[in-house]
Design a protein around this nucleic acid. Sequence first.
DNA 1: CCATAATATGGACGGCGTACAGAAAGAAGT
DNA 2: ACTTCTTTCTGTACGCCGTCCATATTATGG
Lengths: 224, 224
Amino acid sequence: MATPMGRRTGRPRAVTEQAILDAALWQLDGGGADAVSIRGIAAQVGIAPNAVYTYFPSKAAVLRALVERFLGDVNHDRFIDRELPWRERVEALALELRTHLVAHRGAVQLLLGGPMDGPNALTLRESLSEALADGGSTPDDAARASYVLLVYIFGAIALEVAELDQRRIAPTERDRVSTRRAVLDTISAEDYPRTTETAGTISKDFTTEQFLWGLTRILNGLQA
Amino acid sequence: MATPMGRRTGRPRAVTEQAILDAALWQLDGGGADAVSIRGIAAQVGIAPNAVYTYFPSKAAVLRALVERFLGDVNHDRFIDRELPWRERVEALALELRTHLVAHRGAVQLLLGGPMDGPNALTLRESLSEALADGGSTPDDAARASYVLLVYIFGAIALEVAELDQRRIAPTERDRVSTRRAVLDTISAEDYPRTTETAGTISKDFTTEQFLWGLTRILNGLQA
DNA sequence: CCATAATATGGACGGCGTACAGAAAGAAGT
DNA sequence: ACTTCTTTCTGTACGCCGTCCATATTATGG
């Protein structure tokens, strides 16, 4: 009972949860959500696959922690500044979220796959709701409106990256299928573009404009 | 060259593509998108797993066809009726889509996972865009607006079912994880509710109201 | 120096998608 | 009717996955 705190005894850990999440994020960026595997993570950090279960109880838990980390990494600076008009703040946050989602585009599948109930997720929803309340909404309407906004932001990126991932055709696609029958294959994670390094090239042109167009319309509707 | 048409020679097929998609849909409803497996489908229709590859070139192709079938099953009746005011038509379609998505809630992951480029998907987008054009939008704006609407509809269901699936805790969740460390597990497809039979119970209460609230606000914003 | 406790590893199990080779089963040509 | 051809189906196998069990490792507290 004399030890200062925390870990008392036993073999020291070889890595950290953060290192594991780093590896997971790397795999996510490199091959999409399906490419995140316990075995891959373990290989990357240099431990046996099952050793991961000392840090997280299951793969699902790893993914949940990854989502939390992702949400914790979005830049809230411009959003926190309560001097700015509320719309500007909301738009800044939406764009910031979008930027991060495009940079780690595999994350959107994870975001939409689980309930947004982690601390960072709740903080995000809450502060978004606050900003909308500053715009004159009742607290109840602000909560609803923040939900609508989150749905739009995540949904838009989901459809966008789905369209982006399309291109590639699977290398192993024999025409076992008889004669005609035009069912084709699409994505196959063959040389998935590591978006962390190419983020700028995608977003600038059409899609951000479309995204902002919808965002402002929605905000118009929410304000009235 | 004398045969009437279609299949000319060879061993007859044991099942049909539709039977395979039926089985896939059954698995989808029973265990979510992750529970759809080639082996499971094959077992259900009574063929060897690899025989499926005579009908579809890959699992991805099966899922794509499943999405198309899903979209083809939505009821367009009230939507097609050009006598109704455009807003009513759009709302009817949105609700119809929502109903189908809640009935087969595993489908939303598939919808958002791939590009919406199948025939039925394009038809949907196009006719939605038409209705919006009836509301006075320019064709360009109507296309953008229909995109926003689809994003909202799919995104809303995605977040909704994510929250629904949460509950269950994994049966195999030892506390290997040391001492505290509060990372829990969630979904585990253990007795996944077969939504086709329970569809009515979920949607009626809070969520449809919330959905409609957002929908009308968005339509307000799109109209202005 | 020993007991204890946390962590890491080796190995295995069952399940997945799917590739390959060969067997089955009708249709067409003689 | 027999043979050939064509398509589909099956047996088998490979590599990958998540995760469990038993065991070995390596610290700390007495």
